[in-house]
């Protein structure tokens, strides 16, 4: 199994190989894709990429937390968190690819 870490560079390299744009333009397209997805999520929209997965923004209510070290009570403000639900295709391919 792999354990390698891919970055934006690997994604733009894949775009470069697949479409034959310059490396620079490939990199800026990868950035645009991530930028548009982030902007939609910040607006509170769900981002649903068929056969990849769904990113959703969930509102978490305020609650009283505790500093685990000191036991002191600390207010936790309401916040928005992002959740990702992988598609069946992604789950199947990840399960199959990492089998045995």
């Amino acid at each position: 199994m792999g354990e390698r870490t891919l970055t934006r560079m690997d994604l733009s390299e894949a775009v470069f190989r697949e479409v034959g744009l310059s490396r620079n333009e490939s990199a800026s397209l990868v950035e645009s894709v991530l930028g548009h997805m982030s902007d939609a999520l910040v607006r509170g929209e769900q981002v649903k990429i068929s056969s990849f997965g769904t990113f959703s923004v969930r509102e978490k209510a305020a609650r009283v937390g505790r500093n685990p070290k000191t036991g002191e009570e600390v207010p936790i403000h309401p916040r928005r968190v992002l959740t990702f639900r992988p598609s069946h295709l992604m789950k199947d391919r990840v399960a199959l690819g990492n089998k045995g």
Partner: peptide, 23 residues
Amino acid sequence: RIVNTIFEEVIDAMARGDRVELR
């Protein structure tokens, strides 16, 4: 093709057991 390649690459990486870190 560009958009599909990006998502495909992420799935391929995870299918190999790799991580994809997008700062």
